[in-house]
Computed example of a mutant assay.
Amino acid sequence: MARQRPDSPPLFEIVDYPDFSFEKRAIARGQWPVAGLDEAGRGPLAGPVVAAAVVLDPARIPDGLDDSKRLTLAQREQIFSQILATALGVSMASVCAEGIDRSDIRKASLEAMRRALCGLPLAPKLALADGRDVPPGLPCPGEALVKGDRRSQSIAAASIVAKVMRDRMMTGCGNVDARYGFEIHMGYATARHRTAITTYGAVARWHRISFAPFRNGAAENTPSEDEEQIL
């Protein structure tokens, strides 16, 4: 028997794309400028974690802002250029693989976001951070938004900036050492990357030695398709 559609309307609309509503409420409270914070690169076996802070111009919000993982490479690059051309402030910061190994990826991600916020050319009155945690040590109040890159356009803009900049950094690593294919998988644990690690060992200062499989005995080396064209 087919299930009948209920007559009553839904209690709330499910929104799965970012808007400017969090920022508008902050403006109404007198908290402006508002910066969005996000990071890229928590999961890879190699490379830095990169964070970005973005203060959008409410009158010039780029079209197509979304979670960077839901955009194609071409879309990210196009919107990245629009963000740089229209935003009131953009800043990027990173924590290298050695810094991640000295603490942990969560702390390193939050530290990268803090550095990015502090690098803005204007002083925000509120920071909207993607995730469950507000980075410690911010120079302004912060609010954590779970899945913030799908809820706040400022966070979505930061996610795009962080992703584009990190991908460019990993492409540079691939140009220096072609054995690992960093320019293809961006340091994620694809089959090609794992095979290269098994064959050549880890690259000092590039690979995160505190991550598996390195804890299981992979040797370090010096610098000298694959699955998921990762996000």
Rank of each mutant, 00 (worst) to 15 (best):
S21K: 01
F22K: 13
K24M: 12
R25P: 03
I27M: 07
I27Y: 08
W32Q: 13
P33R: 12
V34A: 08
G36T: 00
L37T: 00
G41E: 00
L45P: 08
G47F: 02
V49W: 03
V49T: 07
V50T: 15
A51D: 07
A53Y: 02
V54S: 10
A59D: 08
I61F: 04
P62N: 10
S68L: 12
K69A: 11
Q75D: 14
E77H: 02
Q78H: 15
F80T: 03
S81V: 15
I83H: 09
L84T: 06
T86F: 06
A87R: 07
A87H: 10
L88R: 11
L88Q: 09
S91D: 05
M92W: 12
C96V: 03
E98T: 10
G99V: 04
G99R: 00
D104L: 05
M113S: 03
R114L: 07
C118E: 15
G119Q: 02
L122T: 14
A123V: 05
L126T: 06
A129K: 00
R132H: 14
R132F: 14
P136N: 13
P136M: 05
P136Q: 11
G137K: 10
G142R: 00
E143C: 14
K147N: 12
Q153W: 06
A156F: 08
A157Y: 01
V161T: 10
